[in-house]
Design a protein around this nucleic acid. Structure first.
Lengths: 185, 185
DNA sequence: CAGTTATTTCTGCAGAAAGAGAAATCACTG
DNA sequence: CAGTGATTTCTCTTTCTGCAGAAATAACTG
């Protein structure tokens, strides 16, 4: 394996660790992302020096995230895998997964807490207000997140390319300071 | 401590754990967020049942993220702390912190890997292309992130309230399907 | 300068998580 | 039904991380 590829695999694996994805999973994903053609589980285990079982479990997780897919290869009974290479698809799927697994439960928990606080006279007025504020805020973000995930990738890309200029293109460019016209507000 | 408050502290603490913030830090933050008035490190240790030293370290971290601040109290030599209660400030500071600590290193690492790949004949054409694509993608997102953090909170809020309708308000609403006018594309 | 309060650093412990490998089970093919 | 590949489950080991507490240091006050 070329040093650069190896580096990428290692870095990506490490990165995954920081983001709550386990290292093996991230490494396998990295390897498949750079692979020219579909490869088998055994090849993966071989290339990365990890146990077959570990590869099997990790593949299962990656399939769950829809970041890789199984592809049949003529004349070979073994399963081969290839990665999703459309980066927007990738990003979207990761974002969806994280939202479902982390954000949604948080929102639910928060709602529950706020409900409990409403009925409790021992909770100060200040605390109650802050809880409500937090709940509203999170709900707003959550809603936004959903909407953005529903917008087709190419349009999102256009939005991003616009960057902060989007602010000026819309009506609320009428802020106090008049002349910040170059995306640097 | 009222049950609802305790619940919030616990939930928030737990949530922090999932996001790479350690539990004590998140709990202290939750407690301060709901507090009516500035409180001392000792009170915190007391309320949450953790060691003074632990509180001291956690406070230091929270100060680093600028999520809480020190405030003097008349007639009391001890230090008191209060939380930032503006949720947009909070979100912005967390986002900035995470970017600095996680995204930026990743971008740098990726750039490094791409450079290495360019000079290496052992790296296949496909792999090289994919690395470049990844690098470009991440750089774009990184740039966007920076720009958004620079936009004042109230404008961001306006954008978010618009949600996916923002797409239609801008010129590239001329997609194939004509009539999706209610934010549900 | 003595006494009090805060911070900081270091060390050790405990719990959680990750990964590896063995073995059992399942599925398919000829 | 024998043989091969794949998945799944279980357990063991190892590694990490969080947290507590002790001790050293620093800052301030009367």
């Amino acid at each position: 394996m070329a040093p650069a590829v190896e580096q990428f695999v290692l870095r990506w694996g490490d990165l995954g660790g920081q983001w709550g994805v386990n290292r093996s999973v991230a490494q396998i994903h990295a390897l498949l992302y750079l692979a020219e053609r579909p490869i088998t589980a055994e090849d993966i285990a071989d290339a990365l020096g990890m146990a077959r079982s570990n590869v099997s479990n990790s593949i299962r997780e990656l399939l769950g995230w829809k970041l890789i897919r199984r592809v049949p290869v003529l004349g070979d009974r073994r399963d081969h895998y290839e990665a999703e290479t459309d980066l927007w698809q990738m990003a979207t799927r990761i974002a969806q997964g994280r939202k479902q697994r982390e954000i949604d439960p948080a929102v639910a928990a928060l709602r529950h807490v706020v409900d409990a606080a409403e009925d409790d006279p021992r909770v100060s007025r200040v605390a109650r207000d802050r809880l409500r504020a937090m709940q509203g805020f999170v709900a707003t973000l959550d809603d936004w997140y959903d909407q953005m995930l529903a917008v087709p990738p190419n349009k999102i890309m256009a939005l991003i390319k616009l960057g902060s200029r989007v602010v000026n293109l819309l009506s609320f460019g009428r802020g106090k300071k008049g002349a910040d016209k170059d995306g640097k507000d």
